[in-house]
Design a protein around this nucleic acid. Structure first.
Lengths: 242, 242
DNA sequence: ACCTGAACACCGTTCAAGT
DNA sequence: ACCTGAACACCGTTCAAGT
């Protein structure tokens, strides 16, 4: 450990080394525990030394996002727009899932970086190459939203009922009764979902399946609109075309 | 101002008063400037006084979310599932848009509160009442994701090009050339979008339109699956039913 | 028993003093 | 000119001392 620090001290700092260490540290201890001070300590330098390579913490986070975006596979060629888009999204999903902090950081970014813009540009290119009109491409990008990054807000991120299995049987029963009374529909859906899944509550959802379910619903919808030649453009008289 | 503080000091603190003040303060100064210390100051009390009404900051944020969720209109009756769901989502959207911090706080919450569970429960109820199977209801809820809260991650939140119009003409032209070279597709889509919109870059997107576009794509998809009697349930031999 | 000021263990970042 | 320790202005929360 001390050896690592010593070795690290010998190699001169660089922006890349700072970013790589930040990604690694966030992977290990979580994004909320990633501070400039802690990162500096990990690199064996004084906190202020970081500020020569990143302007501030905001720029550090931008750089970290770029590093993750770089891990997304390039678009496959000659596969048809639908398959190309689908594969790309699932590749993005894989990259983002490997760094659990990446989703939140990406969402919180307001200044889009070159890497992010580049990804979006190539993404739009897949639709345009597939014959989509510029107009439809625009709306379709909005509809995908953060799904183009391979994620959507999962409403039960880490279900709080992880401790459910640790609870005493009578406490479980009481919670069950309360759920049945106050949230009958949730209970119905949750128990059905875990039917062939895992435990009674929680763990029942296959995130990957749900993600692809929604993705394919949208892609099918896009396909239908594309075939119809749908557009949101107004005609000269101001009435919508459709 | 001092009068307000004086008046506030006279009324005894309560959980509701703390939460209301927190919502108001977040509306005014933004969520990142909302601190326990600042909130206490606004209420004319010592910071530690807050801890008698909320266990910690996390619980304060939970309470704030609940307050916003309470602003969402109840489901309309006898309107058909599609219309009911649509109206509810758009009502949620209105509530969430009135408090720009609410989206981020809602997303960051991991322990779902009773109010949030109640909303989700009534949301599932709309599909079930519309004749959806429990199975389809489950997947459909996942597909809606955060859209059921009336928002989706807008990829250009506050476009950084707000300052674009402030730039010198030659700087604008240079940026334009760089965009054309590095991000040709983004440029194409952006200029087309702002065709009947506003300026050349940015301001071109009607968020409300884009939101409803995606929402309706999904609702139409749900309708189709519902009519087909789609299900993800496995048959006895383990093969998917469809 | 209740209330609260001081203190603790952190932040990101500035700045001036040291080399 | 470069580097960096101390300092500034904050956090959320603990805790003991005061009433």
């Amino acid at each position: 450990m001390t050896q690592q620090v010593e070795a690290a001290r010998r190699v001169p700092l660089s922006r890349d080394r700072v970013l790589a260490a930040a990604v690694e540290l966030a992977d290990e201890v979580g994004i909320e525990a990633l501070s400039m001070r802690r990162l500096a300590q990990e690199l064996g330098v004084v906190p202020m030394a970081l500020y020569k390579h990143v302007a501030n913490k905001e720029e550090l986070l931008n750089g970290m996002v770029d590093a993750i975006v770089a891990e997304i596979d390039p678009a496959v060629r000659d596969a048809g727009w639908k398959r190309t888009v689908r594969l790309r999204v699932l590749s993005a999903r894989r990259a983002l899932l490997q760094h659990r902090w990446a989703r939140r950081v990406l969402e919180s970014r307001t200044n889009t970086t070159p890497a992010v813009l580049g990804y979006m540009d190539s993404f739009m290119g897949m639709f345009l190459a597939g014959g989509f009109s510029v107009n439809l491409t625009h709306h379709v990008m909005h509809a995908l939203g953060s799904r183009m990054w391979g994620f959507t807000q999962e409403l039960f991120d880490d279900p709080a009922n992880e401790n459910f299995s640790d609870m005493a049987p009578e406490a479980q029963a009481a919670m069950f009764r309360e759920m049945a009374e106050r949230y009958p529909n949730i209970l119905k859906v949750a128990t059905a979902a875990s039917h062939d899944g895992g435990s009674v509550v929680g763990q029942g959802c296959d995130d990957q399946f749900e993600f692809e379910f929604a993705l394919d619903l949208l892609l099918d919808g896009f396909e239908r609109l594309h075939e119809q030649g749908w557009t949101s453009e107004k005609r000269a008289d101001g009435a919508p075309r459709e």
